[in-house]
Amino acid sequence: MLALDRVSKTYPNGVQALARFSAEIKQGEIVAIIGGSGCGKSTLLRAIAGLDSASAGTVTLDSEAIGSPHAKIGIIFQEPRLLPWLSVADNIGFGLADLPAAERREKVARALARVGLADKAQAWPRELSGGQAQRVAIARALVPQPEVLLLDEPFSALDAFTRRDLQDHLLDLWADTRPTLILVTHDVDEAVVLADRVLVMRPRPGRLFDQIEINLGRPRDRNSPLFENFKRSVLTSLDRSLDRNVPDRDATQGPGQAMWW
């Protein structure tokens, strides 16, 4: 279990990005974090990843305190961040340097096939499309089999089709080993499709505002009325978090409005 206990972060310039954020996330749970721009989502994720340390409060994974990057925690950023001088296969195997070469090759080959890029093993990152590159990044993060995978707006730079494709793909991959997923997103649709639970944050200072359980089986039908209902309650909560009036019905319908930024 991943436990966040009153995690706070004040940057050296005095910005209080995160204030007493507490949450408990079960092993294998998928949690989406959503909230206005600048409400500390990335800050929170970086604290969990051990990339930045919290000013106060603790992050513990299975009662082990996290203060620096941990083998059981992987992270995927908004950009693929592939190493341009390594082939696709070597990028995926980047975190497996300690394994014997044969074992590494086998794991990489399996991961490549799993993300549907077996034919791109020897390609350079610059030869990939945005969606392919992000799939490589997902494979690179998953291949060491982390218990927790953090994703900071991983699909926001992609077009709607590719995004949907990768969302389904991510769920597929998740089902293999069922790591805990913590996903920051701007896309209400994405949150409701993927998450067991949506955490809504509120800005200045960044803090937890609301939690919405998504009690839907998988695979989820994006067009079902129930799905729409969950989307609407997330949107409503989001709007309240930004101190805006609840929008009228029409505004929450149509796929365009689902991306509320």
């Binding site: 990843a49 990339l51 620096s68 990057p69 941990h70 083998a71 992987g74 992270i75 950023f77 950009e79 961040r81 190493l83 980047f94 975190g95 340097a97």
Partner: peptide, 16 residues
């Protein structure tokens, strides 16, 4: 820096 961060998340030692 973003790529250095990738190295950090894979816990590379200073030399690596």
């Amino acid at each position: 820096r973003k790529i250095v961060e990738v190295g950090r998340t894979f816990r590379l030692s200073g030399f690596a």
